[in-house]
Write a protein that binds this DNA or RNA. Structure first.
Lengths: 322, 322
DNA sequence: TTTGTAATTCTCATTGTGAGCATAATGAAC
DNA sequence: GTTCATTATGCTCACAATGAGAATTACAAA
């Protein structure tokens, strides 16, 4: 008898609070202790569309309506990081959702976690993190050297240079998934060492320094989500889904930086925002945040119907603030 | 008893021949006569991954191995353009595949069709097509005028301007899906008028001038594929999957133009290709194609490991050849 | 030889991007 | 009450990328 197929709707729900991007996780019910992304099964009888199905169970679990929702990717490997299920084949349709508040309905097993706990090498706001220099690059060098000399080794070297940046190639903030997959192939993230045995390398802490693991292939999904989010910031006004109604330009910039994982040049950032006519002043000012009071702005929703790609442009290179 | 879920793997197989992008279709087995994209069901027992499943049945059907394959989107609406199936909920995972040859194993019900038969407004190589000026824009104007005056109408106007271009917004070649969906909402494509009755508006010809329909939601899938392909051309060297081993720069340019649906400035195009070090000379020349003989080039596969985004840049604006 | 068609080389103006200087407006420290 | 730290805001400059086109070269066919 053929196995059945079930469809799981996975949500990567992202908010930004305290200058950190955070993701909603539930305590992992899987075979290891790692937290998991929340998900609900598709009810083929009740959910008219996949997205509506997702919204329905998220509302049921957290009492919140999702603002921005977009489909990310469909994962369907037979053994998605856990033990293969003998009874049913599980297909995971992953979504990215953005929410403003981090408030949760009380009594839920869900919790907000800093995204960079799971992908620490992605946060370069303070320059290249020591983790990258001291641990990841050496480990990658070893992985490269482990390949037979010649084309195979050059291939590994090239991939590492492109994904993690090097002299020639800068650092492409969007290649989040490429980087995670490279670390996975090199056997450096805990998930790669999970043979299927319970508790095998799946510690929720991060002793090795290569980021805390998530259940099954959920860290891959999170990497997909962060990469997509970073890419889309450039040409869609997504940041505003994460900000309060009124905000200062510095808040806006910090939120973008937080997601992009790099610092931006303040004056140029403002030039872009103004040129794009993305915001309009409210007339009010934010009472002193430590310096000269900042004007408060609100998002001009009309831009979406005015210009083709109204995003908060990320520059090519990460640039330090002056 | 809950309905079962089955997963279909849909392939948008694209090749470029005779200065036209073509897509592989099969004669529609659905409730109308429109052709369909080929697809095969996921076998949960035999296919280890979704992509392997797709490759397996494509190989079985056409005897060909796919070169480039990427996942596009997962469609799961209950009523995906056809009559709702009472027994099973069908989820469609759509893929884009690129192939070089258009040769088909003999005796197959598949056929290559020009992509622009289904999306005629997307081909602007000869300037804005008359279809757009004479039929689509007037029809859209009527649709806009049909909305209650005020915000609703401005919203429709804005969407039409952005997706189909206007004075302010140029023409964004990548917004293929947006355009199709707008035409669908405005009730202008045949699929939108299919109530479910057989033969209802599903004629394979194109009397109304809004493109030939495909079965179910397959034209939506095709639009997704073309949009993705156009976008990815810019930062990935995908064109070369569609070209022979050796080619002239004009062949390369024509292939890009064919997919992008716009003419490009020859000199600038060559500058981009050279600057990107995407190709290398073979030393041979193409014996006269009508003028001065052209050097033959081959793709430098190494670039993929050298630079982060080695694409054949599409310019922002469509520019006539000089 | 003339003509048509491409291939190839160069210029040039305009715009966009990365960086940095200078000035203004606050609250907190002394 | 002056100084200082901190942030907002305005302006300039160099340089790279882009869009457009002139000019020149190489070949086949008429």
């Amino acid at each position: 008898m053929p196995r059945e197929v079930t469809v799981g709707l996975h949500a990567t729900i992202v908010a930004v609070t305290g200058a950190e991007p955070r993701v909603l996780t539930v305590s992992g019910g899987a075979d290891d202790g790692a937290p998991a992304l929340p998900f609900g099964p598709l009810d083929p009888d009740r959910h008219r569309t996949l997205e509506l199905g997702l919204r329905a169970w998220v509302r049921g679990q957290t009492g919140k309506d999702l603002a921005h929702v977009e489909q990310l990717y469909t994962f369907g490997d037979r053994d998605r990081g856990g033990a293969a299920d003998e009874r049913a084949r599980v297909i995971a349709v992953a979504y990215l959702a953005l929410v403003r508040e981090r408030h949760l309905a009380a009594g839920h097993p869900a919790a907000w976690q800093a995204v960079y706990r799971f992908l620490p090498w992605e946060d370069r706001r303070g320059g290249e993190p020591a983790l990258l220099r001291d641990r990841i690059r050496p480990a990658l060098d070893a992985w490269i050297a482990a390949a037979p000399a010649g084309a195979a080794r050059r291939e590994r070297r090239g991939r590492a240079d492109i994904t993690f940046g090097s002299g020639a190639a800068p650092w492409d903030a969007e290649r989040v998934l490429d980087r995670y997959e490279l670390l996975y192939e090199a056997g450096l993230v805990a998930e790669a060492r999970r043979g299927g045995g319970p508790g095998d390398g799946g510690a929720a802490s991060d002793p090795a320094g290569f980021g805390a693991p998530l259940a099954l292939d959920h860290r891959r999904i999170l990497a997909t989500a962060l990469g997509r989010l970073r890419g889309k910031l450039k040409y869609r006004p997504l940041v505003f889904e994460l900000l309060p109604e009124a905000f200062t330009l510095l808040q806006l910039q910090r939120t973008v930086e937080t997601l992009a994982g790099v610092r931006l040049h303040k004056q140029n950032f403002r030039r872009l925002v103004e040129r794009g006519a993305l915001v309009e002043g409210t007339g009010r000012v934010e009472p002193a945040t430590g310096g000269r009071p900042a004007k408060l702005f609100r998002f001009r929703r009309e831009v979406q119907h005015e210009r083709p790609a109204p995003g908060v442009g990320l520059p090519g290179l990460p640039v330090a603030d002056s």
